[in-house]
Nucleic acid binder design. Structure first.
Lengths: 339, 339
DNA sequence: TTTTTGATTGGGAACGATTCCAATCAAACA
DNA sequence: TGTTTGATTGGAATCGTTCCCAATCAAAAA
C-alpha cells in the first residue's frame, strides 16, 4: 500500500499539499491539485484510516445495536441507515445484542474502545442502567435512541413511530367490522413505544363503547430468555383461545407476534378472519407471506433508519442545532387477516 | 480518554513497559505488571485501535459480505461468526450487497481501504470478474469463500455444505412416497453449490428409475433484478402447476423459494402434500413457520459460520498450514410438506 | 525598480501506540 | 573483589496522517 509520501514524491509536492487535497481543508492551486489527483490515481492510493483517525479522532464508522438479528424489522431499518452511511463514506457495524442487557454493555464498551463516530441504539429490555448509560453517553457523543419514548420531553435524540393513535384506529376498525371481544398479545410493559400501542388499543375500545377486558390480554412473562416474538404470539393465541370466552379478534405488539398467533390459529383450525381477526404492527415483509396476509400498522421503517442516520451524521459534523426528536405517523393497512 | 503515557506515569514506568503488558510481547516483572494493571484499571484505559493499527497493521475487524440481509440464512451464519469473533476481540462488519456485483466491488474497495483483517465472502451472482478479484485478494489477505464450489481442488479457502448427495436422498424419498412427477425450481446455474443440489436431484430421479423431465424444471430468468427467492418460488410454482401435466412434488434450490412455492400452492387451493409435496434446502427458521411446515435439507448454518471465522482468525494469526477447505454434510429433515 | 500583498506551498511537531536496542542492575561466577 | 550473565527496563525511532506556522513566489501597488 502506498502512502501519502509516495503520492507527494510522484507529484513533486510535499505531504502537506497532498493532505490538503485529500481532506479538502485549505486551498491548492488547481494545476497542483490535478497533478496530485493523477498521482493518487496512478498509485491507487487511499489514506490510511488509522493515521487519519489518530489525528482527527474520527473512524467514519457507525454502530447499530439491535436486539435480534432475525427480526427483519431491524433489517429494513438497517437498509435505510446503510444507504445514508455509504453515501457519506461511513460504514455501519451491526451489533446483535440478542435482547441481553449484558451484551448491550459489552458492545457499548467495545464501541467506546473502537471510538465509533455514532451509535444507533435499539433496545428491547430497556434496562434502566443501560438507558442511563446510553443517555449519559449521548451527552458525550452522537447517540440516537430508536423506538424509545418515555415522555416526549426526554432529553435524548430519538426517532420513532407514533403508536397510540394508529392502534386506536385499528381497534375501532375491528369493532366496525363487528368484532366485540378484541384481545391483545403484548410484551412486558417496558417503557417504550410498545406500551403506547397497547394504550391506543384500549382507548380505541373505550371510544367504541367497549370496556377493555383484562381477561383478553396476554402478556408474556418477563423472565423467559431465548423466546422470540414468534413464540410469544403462538403462546398468547393458545392462551387466549382456550379461555372459556375467547376473543373474536387479536391485536399484537408486533407483526412477528401476529405471525405466531396466526400459526397457532391455523393449526388449531380457526378461520381467519371468520372466527378470529388478527392485526399486527410494523408491516414487515413476512406480513404478506403468511396465510392469510396480515392486516397491520405500517411504519416507514426504512425511512426511519434514513432519518436516524442523517441526524447522527449531522451531529458528527457538529451541527448541533438540528431537530433530533422525530416522530413518524404510521399507516393502517388492511389485508386478509381482517377482511 | 487516557493514553499509554498516563498509565506509564501513574505506574511510574515507561511507555515501553506498559506496552509490553498490553500486547503481551516481552517479559515484565510481575510486581511491575501488577502496578501497571492497577493503573490501567484506575484510568479505565484502553489502547487506541488507531495507534495500534498504524503500527501493527491490524484492525481487529472482520467483514462479512452477504447478498441479501433479509435472507435469514445469512443471519444464522452471522451468529456463528459473531460468536467466534467476539470471543477473540474481533468485530464483524456486515456488508449487504443486495445481490449486486457492483456493490460487491464497492464494498471490497471500501474494505481494502479500511484494512479489515479478513473477509467472509458470500456471493450470489458469482460474477467472474468478482470471483477473480476475490481469488486474487485471497492471496494477499485472509478471505474465505462461502458456499462456493467450482471444483473441489480450486485454490481458495472455502466452507460449504455438500448438496449433491443430500438432494439425491430427498428426490429418492419423494419417489418412495409415491411421487412420480417431481419438479424443480432453481436459480440460474452460476457455478455454485446450488448447481450441485440440482445435479443431485436429477441423479436421485435416475437412481429411482425416473427419467428427469426438463419440462418440470423452472429456472428463473437471469436478468431480473430486485427479485427475491420468494418471488422466484412463487412464480416457479405458478409456472409448473399450470403446465398441461403438472408435477406432484416440487424441490427447490433454497427454503425461501420453497416458501414462495407454498404460498402459491396454498393460494391456488392445492393440498400440500396431498396434491403436491414441497422440499426446500437450508432449514431456515421460516421453515417451521409456514403452513405446512417445510421438509428440507438442513445445513449446520451456524456451525458453518463458526468454522469460517475460526479459519479466518487462524490465518490472521499466521497459521497458514491449517485445513481451509471444509465441506459439511447436511441432514434431511422430514416435515409436513411431504408427510 | 522596490515594496506590499495574497495565494500557495513546505517543514516540523503531534497523534498514541510498538519495538529494537542499549542501559541498568542484581545475582552468580571466577 | 572484579567480571559475567540474564532479567528488566528505558529511550528513541517509527507508523501515516493532519495542521499550524513560516517560507516562497508572483502579481499588484507604490
Amino acid at each position: 500500500m502506498s502512502t501519502i509520501l509516495d503520492v507527494a514524491k510522484l507529484a513533486g509536492v510535499s505531504r502537506s499539499t497532498v493532505s490538503r487535497v485529500i481532506s479538502g481543508n485549505g486551498v491548492v492551486k488547481s494545476e497542483t491539485r490535478d497533478k496530485i489527483l493523477h498521482a493518487i490515481e496512478n498509485l491507487n492510493y487511499s489514506p490510511s484510516y488509522f493515521a487519519q483517525g489518530i489525528k482527527t479522532g474520527k473512524t467514519k464508522m457507525l454502530a447499530m445495536l439491535i436486539p435480534d438479528y432475525s427480526n427483519l424489522y431491524y433489517g429494513e431499518m438497517y437498509r435505510g441507515i446503510e444507504q445514508v452511511a455509504l453515501e457519506n463514506g461511513y460504514m455501519v457495524m451491526i451489533c446483535n445484542t440478542d435482547k441481553s442487557s449484558t451484551r448491550e454493555r459489552i458492545y457499548a464498551e467495545e464501541l467506546r474502545k473502537r471510538e465509533v463516530d455514532g451509535i444507533i441504539y435499539n433496545t428491547y429490555k430497556r434496562n434502566k442502567d443501560n438507558i442511563d448509560y446510553f443517555t449519559k453517553l449521548s451527552k458525550q457523543m452522537p447517540v440516537i435512541f430508536m423506538d424509545y419514548i418515555d415522555d416526549k420531553d426526554i432529553d435524548v435524540p430519538y426517532v420513532l413511530s407514533e403508536g397510540f393513535e394508529s392502534s386506536k384506529k385499528a381497534a375501532r376498525y375491528l369493532v366496525s367490522k363487528g368484532k366485540r371481544r378484541i384481545g391483545y398479545i403484548r410484551v412486558p410493559p417496558y417503557i417504550s413505544v410498545v406500551q403506547h400501542r397497547y394504550e391506543g388499543y384500549k382507548q380505541g375500545l373505550i371510544e367504541s363503547g367497549i370496556e377493555p377486558d383484562e381477561e383478553l390480554v396476554y402478556q408474556c412473562p418477563d423472565n423467559e430468555v431465548g423466546k422470540t416474538h414468534l413464540d410469544v404470539g403462538f403462546e398468547g393465541a393458545l392462551f387466549l383461545m382456550n379461555k372459556p370466552n375467547p376473543p373474536d379478534a387479536i391485536m399484537t405488539s408486533t407483526d412477528i407476534m401476529a405471525v405466531g398467533a396466526i400459526k397457532y390459529l391455523n393449526g388449531a383450525g380457526y378461520k381467519i378472519p371468520g372466527d378470529v381477526s388478527v392485526v399486527g404492527f410494523d408491516d414487515i415483509a413476512l406480513a404478506t407471506i403468511v396465510e392469510p396476509s396480515l392486516t397491520t400498522i405500517s411504519q416507514p421503517t426504512r425511512k426511519i433508519g434514513e432519518v436516524a442516520a442523517r441526524i447522527l451524521l449531522a451531529k458528527i459534523n457538529g451541527e448541533n442545532d438540528i431537530e433530533d426528536q422525530i416522530i413518524f405517523e404510521p399507516e393502517f393497512i388492511v389485508r386478509g387477516s381482517t377482511d
